[in-house]
């Protein structure tokens, strides 16, 4: 499997990359870890005339805390997120999700920014970034803007990024007070991608009453989505097994589910409900 020919440029700075992309927006693709783009190029689903490798730009891989937020550089690898001791303390959903991605080799090279920008409907990060109420920082020739995770995923393999924009950073609010987070997943046995993946982020008050629930679901539809029906059913109520059961029945409300050789749409609906219930209870157990 050999990709079509392309020009390759590895800019040393973000400004250079922005300029290159501005000049070649419709011919060029950005190369991050390459674990989505290179397979697509080998299959000739993508045939960019130019690759702009942002892997040589200094300081695009970092995990920082600033102004009540966790800031994650686009080129941060899944492994860096999985192995961050600090994240395990302050936002365990990030390392937990990272650990579910592919295998060790994939996690050593694949990046969170690349995964989000590719927006594979079965990727793990979109569910988690939605559940964490994250924001995507996009930068380009027209300046910088932040996009809410809810608005970022537009359709299958399509995001709100403009052709001249580079995904620079992911921002996630730091959780205050008593909270519980969990990711549950049915991995496809061959690819490891999510047949269904559910990320739950709960904030709890006294007596186990849910103050705010945030639920992101991936793998099930053309894009990752927020399960508002589940959130509404949880908010303001005391969490227990019965509530998790009734709330998770709303996990696929209003969503057109994917069906494929491995899992029909009906089976996916079942999986989404079961794995949402499990994720709620797992997150709840974490908060204790």
């Amino acid at each position: 499997m050999i990709p079509t020919q392309f020009d390759y440029i590895a800019p040393a700075t973000l400004d250079e990359a922005i300029q290159l992309l501005a000049d070649n927006a419709y011919d060029a693709k950005l190369l991050a870890g390459g674990h989505s783009l290179i397979p697509a190029m080998k299959l000739r689903l993508a045939q960019p005339a130019m690759l702009i490798d942002i892997g040589r730009i200094k300081d695009l891989a970092y995990i920082r805390e600033e102004g009540g937020q966790i800031l994650i550089g686009a080129m941060t690898t899944h492994y860096q997120l999985e192995s961050s001791e600090r994240l395990k303390e302050i936002c365990p959903l990030l390392p937990e999700t990272a650990g579910h991605i592919g295998d060790a080799q994939v996690r050593n090279k694949g990046t969170i920014g690349g995964s989000l920008a590719h927006s594979d409907p079965a990727a793990d990060w979109p569910a988690t970034v939605i559940a964490l109420n994250g924001e995507i920082v996009a930068t380009g020739k027209n300046g910088e803007r932040t996009i809410k995770a809810d608005d970022f995923f537009v359709d299958m393999l399509t995001t709100a990024l403009e052709p001249v924009e580079i995904l620079r950073e992911i921002r996630v609010p730091l959780v205050q007070g008593r909270a519980g987070q969990a990711y549950t997943k049915v991995p496809h046995p061959a690819s490891g991608f999510a047949v269904v993946g559910v990320a739950v982020n709960l904030s709890l008050g006294a007596d186990d009453v849910c103050q705010s629930a945030s639920v992101g679901i991936t793998g099930a539809a053309v894009k990752a989505y927020r399960a508002r029906g589940v959130e509404n059913a949880l908010n303001g109520n005391r969490i227990d097994e019965a509530l998790a059961q009734t709330a998770s029945a709303h996990a696929a409300d209003g969503v057109d589910l994917n069906g494929d050789l491995y899992a029909s749409a009906d089976y996916r609906r079942h999986l989404v409900e079961v794995y949402t219930r499990r994720a709620i209870l797992k997150a709840f157990a974490q908060a204790k």
């Binding site: 499997m1 390759y8 590895a10 190369l31 390459g34 674990h35 290179i38 397979p39 080998k42 299959l43 690759l51 490798d53 892997g55 492994y79 592919g102 295998d103 060790a104 080799q105 994939v106 050593n108 090279k109 061959a190 690819s191």
Partner: peptide, 27 residues
Amino acid sequence: CELGECGTCTVLVDRKPILSCLMLGLD
């Protein structure tokens, strides 16, 4: 497999296992 599923092309880059089929030589 050439697509990152099978691991048979694994080499160590900067002492970490990576898939040489999904990394450009230039990288």
